[in-house]
Design a binder for these strands. Structure first.
Lengths: 218, 218, 218, 218
DNA sequence: GATGAATGAGCGTTCATTCAT
DNA sequence: TATGAATGAACGCTCATTCAT
């Protein structure tokens, strides 16, 4: 319980950024924009400095290497990416409720992650692009997901299956369907085709309906 | 109909590679390995040359620039990525059959793309990594998908919906669910977690079941 | 005679350091250590500041440039390096004595310079390392040596030669032998191989014997 | 005997340099000049390239780092610096002769090293300047001197002492006097004050006389 | 056709120095 | 007086690309 956080504590994590000096903030903003646009390897520190309106040396006062800058941007987002499962009572809250739990849970996760990616899509784009090239990202993701998300969700799935509400598939497979469907929507919506004319509320509803139909026992 | 191909013609596309000299093939193999491993921008032509066992200059005899080499590797795979829909009679074949059409179609597409990605996952990994950074890839993908896949599949979806077999959602949304679920499986299986101990036949079956449950009218 | 000093005045030169603030002293100490260790050009002011426990800017309050810091450290040692010959009565003192003068003089110089380098070897190491790269050091050395040491010593040599005690060689050559032999010992002892197990008293004696044998008329 | 060389073989070592391309030779020449002039740390590769008339990248085709360039220049000279003692029969040649052996040996060494430093003084200047900053140089010097020079010379010194020709001092101390006196002359002559008006033949003679007087038993 | 030396622009990074606090 | 963030020129080095052989 000691390494879990209340929503308030999680928000504090976000506000830590406030400690940054004005110039440092400018550097981070410019770096996010450029990393997202052309990728880490193709981004140059001189371009970042120019866009941030600082001298190139200023970047290296705050971040020892270009890679450190990338990590400082992406690493916190890796933790925050599983924020719903960091909430202390996530498991109990959901299981104590009635037969509509599954739907509630899916709606909660989708809505919550929708807002998260809506606010952070440039950094998440960077994460998606760079996760292949930096073992550190994969390691951190695996750690954070395995420690805080996988077990909780598998328990929930088994709980729903025992109540006879959910289709009989291995919990890992059900998990894959949930993640795939939700991320498929959000990545399509915010990363791949953000310029399409999305009716967000309708698509969220369809996504939930598709998941419920696909996962619930008839 | 003129820019559509029979299965035989598609296979010929694959065999075009045969025209390449021994050295050229080595270059392409080395480039695929290194691009997939560290990304286009972080790969150096000298490293590719060394791994291919050719001189640095040899690469540039066959490909004017490093980017040309990338394109020569990835572009054909973009076309092949929608191969099932390039087949002349795809639409007729499916719609002329009985009430098990939807399942047959999904099974056909999944099986076919499973084999494709199994054989080509390094190049597909490169495509996934680089599609964000090269407008040319996005343009080609959009063209090929819109011209050959989207319309056919939307017609099919409408056909199933009119037969009362498929859930009532906008065809584009149904398409998204199908693509998301199938690609979610294949990318997870071959690109993100290829080292997991997958029971492929079972997972394929679950994926089909999930799609059928999610998309069929009860 | 006006620019010559008594022993007391020379000591005062040493005590000038007292005027420095605590921080300034720390800077000088750190700079000596780092300049001696890695050379002036490869030493960074930030490293000096860190080792001295002051801010980077503090160095430049006391010394306008990094070179000024080097000069402030080394220049006084250039003067002190010929201290024995700065003593007002060096010449008279030696020539007024008996036939053992030569030996006395050599012992005096060797002993005196042995103590000097024992106390100041880090700065002398810096001087030896940097004298090639800074014309200012060569200029100051030449000035100080020519003005205060060469003429006195040449007169002494001629004096000993006229007394028939010393071998007939050009006085400059004799001077070279003396300097070479004494500095060869001291540099070997304190700069090049300080970690060897030296028997200092014996080696001093051998050095004197070698010089006497080599220079005295048989 | 296997790792010892005839004069001819040693000369071949020198001629190996011939394998270098024209541009590479230019780079080495420029680097020697600039390293000797301002020291390794203060020399810039762009300045070397400019003086050599090549592109900066050309330097790094032949030498992976600036330090490699320094080592390629200096390391062979470390070996050659003890060339006389690498000659197969150095020891026998000298000891088989008559009472004038000591003088012959000293004359041979002085003359030989005089010619060596006359030809190579820029590289030797670099070695003297950089030996303090690069453990690799000290290591190589120690190895080469201990393996090939020290033992041979100590045996010779003991041989002369047993014949009663040489003063009774520890052989290491005698060695120090010889090295100090010869190097003192050569370094003064070629490195420190090369612009003085030296009468080389006379100074060589004085140096030998001083050594003989200083070391021979009366 | 293949080579690999040569190029030079551009990279990430360091550094002595300045200056507002 | 002392600080340390900020600067920007210069550094060592890499790279895609060219071209004489």
């Amino acid at each position: 319980m000691s390494n879990q956080f209340s929503i308030e504590e999680l928000l504090k994590l976000t506000d830590e950024d406030v400690k940054m000096s004005e110039k440092q903030k400018k550097v981070v903003e410019a770096a996010i924009e450029i990393f997202a646009d052309k990728g880490f390897a193709a981004a140059s520190t001189s371009e970042i400095a120019k866009k941030a309106g600082v001298a190139e040396g200023t970047i290296f006062r705050h971040y020892q290497t270009k890679k450190d800058l990338l990590f400082a941007i992406v690493m916190p987002t890796i933790t925050k990416s599983i924020a719903p499962f960091l909430v202390r009572n996530f498991l109990q809250d959901v299981t104590k409720q009635n037969h509509q739990d599954l739907e509630h849970m899916l709606r909660y996760i989708l809505e919550n992650r929708y807002e998260f990616i809506k606010k952070n899509h440039p950094v998440i784009k960077i994460l998606l692009q760079e996760v292949f090239f930096h073992e550190e990202f994969r390691g951190e993701l695996r750690k954070v997901v395995e420690e805080h998300a996988v077990e909780k969700l598998k328990k929930l799935i088994i709980h729903f299956q025992e109540k006879g509400e959910m289709i009989d598939m291995p919990p890992e497979t059900v998990l894959r369907m949930i993640i795939t469907t939700i991320m498929g929507f959000l990545i399509g919506r915010f990363i791949i085709l953000p310029d399409l004319d999305w009716d967000d509320e309708a698509e969220k509803e369809y996504t939930i309906q598709f998941l419920l139909h696909g996962l619930m026992k008839k």
